[in-house]
Nucleic acid binder design. Sequence first.
DNA 1: ATGAAAGCGCTAACAT
DNA 2: ATGTTAGCGCTTTCAT
Lengths: 334, 334
Amino acid sequence: MRKIGNQKRANLRDVAKAAGVSVATVSRVLNSPDSVAPETRAKVQSTISELRFMPSAAARAINSGRTRFVGALVPTLDNAIFASFLSALENKLNDYGLALIVSTIGENPQLEVQKAQSLINLGAEALILSGAAHDPKLFQLTNQTRFPTLATSFYDDSAPLPTIGYDNHDAAQLGVQYLKSAGHRHIAVAHGPVETNDRTQARINGVQSVSGMTIDYHEADISFEGAQVIARNILAQKDRPTAVACMSDVLAIGLLQQFQRSHLRVPEDISVLGMDDLPFAAHTFPALSTIHLPVKRMGTAAGRAIGEWLEHGNEPAPERLEPQLILRESVAEI
Amino acid sequence: MRKIGNQKRANLRDVAKAAGVSVATVSRVLNSPDSVAPETRAKVQSTISELRFMPSAAARAINSGRTRFVGALVPTLDNAIFASFLSALENKLNDYGLALIVSTIGENPQLEVQKAQSLINLGAEALILSGAAHDPKLFQLTNQTRFPTLATSFYDDSAPLPTIGYDNHDAAQLGVQYLKSAGHRHIAVAHGPVETNDRTQARINGVQSVSGMTIDYHEADISFEGAQVIARNILAQKDRPTAVACMSDVLAIGLLQQFQRSHLRVPEDISVLGMDDLPFAAHTFPALSTIHLPVKRMGTAAGRAIGEWLEHGNEPAPERLEPQLILRESVAEI
DNA sequence: ATGAAAGCGCTAACAT
DNA sequence: ATGTTAGCGCTTTCAT
């Protein structure tokens, strides 16, 4: 038994004995107070606080089969996009009396399976995933057992899992179309690794769906170092594009800095468009024009979906959230 | 009982029956495989995977008294400082086979007590706090029961709890001293709310410890909006300071933008010094000089401390991590 | 309205 | 090396 310090934690029996009732009665005041006589209830409740009694979640779980927490798997916390999502998710979950436990998995599908496994072992009642690309084993894990699982950060109403998110294809298309309407005909696209990230792939498809543009593709890590590499390559070009569409704000902000450092003015000499709408994006100089991805709303929607699923058995319907063009100062009309 | 889909989850007894051994043997191959004959072990293991058996964490916890997860309470995830800390913490914890569950509490001490309570209810084996200011009830909760609790984000070897962190007083002092050595004699200090944040208070004390400076204090929310207000106030001054020391990078980055927007050059017209060293800080234009707070190392140290405490009973010693001056481009020597 | 008692899935003595 | 069995702290019938 786990004892902390000297006095071991009081349990149901201790309370029952001290209050002069049976354990069943104590359990009742905990779970259905109305079924207990007011006086009895009052006495039990006061004994509970006297003894600082706290029901054991484990013992509860073993009986009720409910742990009241769900797990989320995200690539990283080191990215405001996921952090915002998770904080909105946690808030909504709390409305349903559900706790959230977060695991980070990098971009490693194997690790994801493993962490999903431990989350389920731990007792998670549902899983919330990011993106569409997952190890098949993950689906074995969740699909076969019909384990409540939700995919986020993308929208696809024909996916094997319910999805809640924005359409990455459309988001990128929206950006490039805007660039086109602003008069740009030759642009660069800066994006992260395609191989390991399905959302990036979807965005590139969106870019390609816009006709009548000359487009150079630059792939690098989504990091400031990656941006540096891309900037160097763009700067070295003989026929330089008039704008660069970044598939991530981090890349855009990095480019902003690198261009200015090379005495290229943004947007006079070259335009930069981001994607994500990180908190910082509005506060760079010049302020970044970007595609806003509704991650807060996504977190709230995911929380509600899971809450309804677990508490009322309503299986979630796919939900599509619209990305939005945010015009600030980093793109010029030409 | 919780059953998912049709076939209820296999349990120890099912495995034992199917493998033709006793439940104890199955339990043994799970917990001390070496004590089981190789053949028996092999048979049991194969039955385990056939039946997709997964031990129930709750049942385990109830017996062993161990849940193998710890809780962390942070103000917010919407701040790279905490996100970095947590990801390092989680990594280190994983080395000890410990999982991390994160709760966000804003700047609300009441909420902190409440969330701490639910974490403990849930079965957390230890708690990791941020900062020094907590509701007394929190200490009742943890101190009286000698619940393993660690405080981070500040250092104080005489605190009631073991602390792992940097000295906020020294960090601020370091910054202002640098400004002084660079020739600045009249500076502004931009900081967040003092009332609700003990770390901010400590930093201000550090600022005040430097003599021979004229210092204007500007308090605002730690946000870009807050920075905007502070920038307006500084800009409106007749006798303008030559530098502003920000107690947070968010404030510094906001100021950078606001100053440039008002056609004030940084650092030629006014210097800006940050604190935190957010990932973005190196990639603003001009790049931000700042005080680096070793949050990654702090996360690792905290993870190790908790791991050693829980796994080997070694109570952690306070640990002091040094803040570090990072010279980039936003401060001029005059 | 309350109590007695049977488990839940597992671990840990204790036997063999 | 393996089995038997008594719990762990709680919820939940089923009686009363």
